[in-house]
Amino acid sequence: MFSLSGKTALVTGASGGIGAAIARQLHAQGATVVLSGTREAALQELADSLGERAHIAVANLSDPAKADGLVAKAEAVAGAPLDILVNNAGLTRDTLAIRMKDSDWSQVMTVDLESPFRLARAALKGMLRRRAGRIISIASVVGTTGNAGQANYAAAKAGIVGMSKSLAQEAGPRGVTVNVVAPGFIETPMTDVLPETVREKLVGSIPLGRMGNTGDVASAVVYLASDEAAWVTGTTLHVNGGMAMV
């Protein structure tokens, strides 16, 4: 079950916690992975630790031209057409709306919403022709619930859901599926710095009684990438320990 042997996957934001876990699990299922991100040394280190079937493609997705060209670049380094696109790269510029600068808004929109579209558009051209493909985007529970201080991020993540549903309708007749994974509160270096009292309160709101780990998210991606998920499209898989049942 869930073998990805012979498949080629591009993972953006692969130098981050969740992205690296996704890349590791796809690779463990047999996929050839192309790791993308801005930090070349971190990507190379991950590729080296994976060994064979791992390539890197450095790209800064705040540059539209780089986003447009990344799929072709990934296919060139992997030497194979892309079967699986994982839009994972993202950034946050958190602040209350009344203090939010135009640049806080536009940077988040460019990287978190526009670049996934650019990548999906490029990937779809080949996938539609080949009558196969998987596009999986990582959103967030805040795209559904909202979150004070994250108007930009929540809007972008909600946008991912609407975009994916539209692409799923366009690509469905060609056997290409488009889905979303929406993680909740995941343990990463970013959440490690939270004060203990804040963590306790957050965990208290999670029925499964713990924070998620990056592997929890990666497993959901593996499922959606697999042949077994062939009849699942346009959906959002919430991976949040039951924190928000939507």
């Binding site: 051209k125 539609l128 022709r129 366009e170 007749p173 060609r174």
Partner: peptide, 11 residues
């Protein structure tokens, strides 16, 4: 052809 085919043809 379906509608997607016609778009692909045009492209």
């Amino acid at each position: 052809a379906d509608s997607l085919d016609t778009v692909e043809l045009v492209m």
